[in-house]
Amino acid sequence: MSSREAILSRIRKARGVAAEPTGAEQARIEAHLRARPISTRPSLEWNPLERFREQCVRMSSTVDGVATMSEVPAAVARYLSSAKLPMQAVAWPGIAALDWSASGVAVEGRPAGGDDLVGITGVHLAIAETGTLMFLSSPTTYAATSLLPETHIAVVPVGVIVPAMEEAWDRTRRETGDLPRAVNFVSGPSRTADIEGQLQIGAHGPFRVHVIVVGA
């Protein structure tokens, strides 16, 4: 008997059920997979945009807002210069395609390497309840851009803000079908408290997460 069969049959024996799953068991799990009920949640009675901005700050991100995508390069330049950061970044192709000429920021549309200091991305969705950014992997949404650089800037159109994680899954299923290889949720900069329980910002991921909300 393979390890697989041994483990599964041990579980079935322990459960006190027949050797093979019955139709009733299959029907029970199919029904749950079809219904995908949303469990008990805390009260979500807030304005999603306000809640998102407030929770981003709570998770130690910084937040800015602009009216249109064309204002993003100037907002990025403002942030980088006020934080005394290099005016140089790598970005997802969609972001690199914006008109950066007047901004003074040199932007390259390529995946981030270990030495790049600033990474600019869009997001798939954003979650108001917890101030969370949601990323899907694809040929043009490099995972490393939001991970390796010390500073991560995320551009969040107001229309992608959903109330909670359950709505994010529902919308993703409807838009993409199967999940892509990687779905990453990011809530603020990287942190650790592994030495004497003292919180330190910037363990392995970015030290700074700056969110630019567009269209508010």
């Binding site: 999940l179 290889r181 990453n184």
Partner: peptide, 19 residues
Amino acid sequence: SISNYISVNTGPKQPGDAD
């Protein structure tokens, strides 16, 4: 209220993926 990073991984790299 949430951990800083959650990674949900489904299978290996797909055609064209950068990472």
